[in-house]
Structures are given as C-alpha cells and as structure tokens.
C-alpha cells in the first residue's frame, strides 16, 4: 500500500453534511468487478450536467479551474456515510484525492480510506470552515500540507497546527502496511485461540462436512 507521510496539495471545500457513498460513487457507475476505472464516476450526480454525455457541471467545485489538481477535500460531518462500497475510496484515490478533512466520517468509509492509503483527518467543523475560507481566496496558492510524521497541518505561509490521528491509523499509513500480512504474523496466537474457542463454543463452528 502507498505510504502516507507528507502530502501537500490543493484543497477543495465540499462542506455539505452527510455526503454518502452513493453520492461519491453511484451504483450505476460501478461497472467492472475490479477496483479501477472508477474516477470518471466520482460524484457523477453532481459533477456532470448530463451524466450520459458526461457534460461537466461548471458550478461543481471539482470542475472549477482554481481547484484543478485538487488532492484534499474539506468536508462536512458524517462524510462517507451509507453504503460500505469501497469503490467510493477507490474512485477518490484514482481521481487523486489523498486526504479528506471532516468533523466526522462514516465508520466503514474511514476504515476503507486507511486500507487504501488515504488519510481521513478529523478536525472541528469551525476549523474546517476557517480553512475553507482561507483556501477559497486562492486555492492554488493556499495549499495545505499534512505531515503525518510530525502530526501537523500547515497552510502555505502560515503557522502549523497539530492534528490528532489515532496511533494504529498513523502507523498503518506512515509505513504503508499491508494489514493482512501484518495479521498473518499472529497466526500462531490466532490458531491457539481458535483451538480453545472450539472447546468453549462448539456450536459456533460449522462442520466441514455439513451438507445443508
């Protein structure tokens, strides 16, 4: 997985609350069984005036020239609520988003972000609103830098402020760890636990030969 250490980029404010994963990637945009080819469907319902011809909606924030090459979203509370579809994160990542800053996140979405090297960064709504105001004055110059090593957030030419990311998320992202590989290192203790658990909870295990 791509590590996340220091990232600097253009931030775009999308401050609506409860932006759901259906809005991030509509069902009808999930056309292949793989994890790629999803960026054109990102925010399809808002991004295009006509979805069939893909005519851009010039008012949508990500279509505005001043937010060209945006890689950070400034978002409202409960961002990524709704469906567990990891396609929402794959679409954001393929589009070029590396970090989403919001007061709160849908729990499954936040986890999906970390599994794919995106940082879901919680900040108070008031701070996000202030950042959004400053960014909007000149998005290409008022870039944000997120340094996960020193746990700081900086707007170009301004003072850094501390950010708070839980230690597991921070470690996974900094080291770009493969979660499965990491857990497989604990195989022995998992097996030992299961051996004892089978004695305690025989009813929880389905027999190999059950033919139902």
């Amino acid at each position: 997985m791509t590590p996340f250490t220091v990232h600097t980029g253009v931030a775009a404010p999308l401050l609506r609350e409860n932006v759901d994963t259906d809005a991030i990637i509509p069902s009808r945009e999930m056309r292949t069984t793989g994890k790629s080819g999803l960026a054109p469907g990102l925010f399809a319902g808002w991004r295009y005036q006509d979805q069939s011809t893909r005519t851009p909606n010039p008012d949508f924030i990500l279509n505005r020239p001043e937010y060209h090459d945006c890689s950070i979203l400034l978002a409202g509370s409960n961002f990524g609520c709704g469906s567990s579809r990891e396609h929402a994160v794959w679409a954001l990542k393929e589009f070029g988003i590396r970090c989403i800053i919001a007061p709160s996140f849908g729990a499954i979405f936040a986890n999906n972000c970390v599994r794919n090297g995106l940082l879901p960064l919680p900040l108070p709504a008031q701070e996000i609103a202030e950042l959004a105001d400053r960014v909007a004055q000149d998005p290409q110059h008022h870039r944000l830098q997120i340094d996960l090593k020193s746990a700081t957030l900086t707007m170009a030419g301004e003072c850094s402020r501390p950010i708070s990311v839980d230690s597991t998320t921070r470690r996974m992202l900094l080291e770009g760890l493969d979660a499965i590989g990491l857990t497989l290192q604990s195989t022995d203790s998992v097996q030992a636990f299961i051996t004892e658990d089978r004695r305690q909870r025989p009813w929880a295990y389905i027999a190999h030969d059950s033919n139902r």
């Binding site: 567990s84 990891e86 999906n112 195989t187």
Partner: peptide
Amino acid sequence: FGIGSSEAEHALATRCLRLQ
C-alpha cells in the same frame, strides 16, 4: 457489522479483523 472489500479479504484470509 459492515466492512469494506479489503476488510472482507482480511477476515477471509486471517479469520479475524483488527479494530478499536
């Protein structure tokens, strides 16, 4: 509880998930 595809892979490959 619901999970993403990556976590589904994790659960299938390891029989567990890492959670707070």
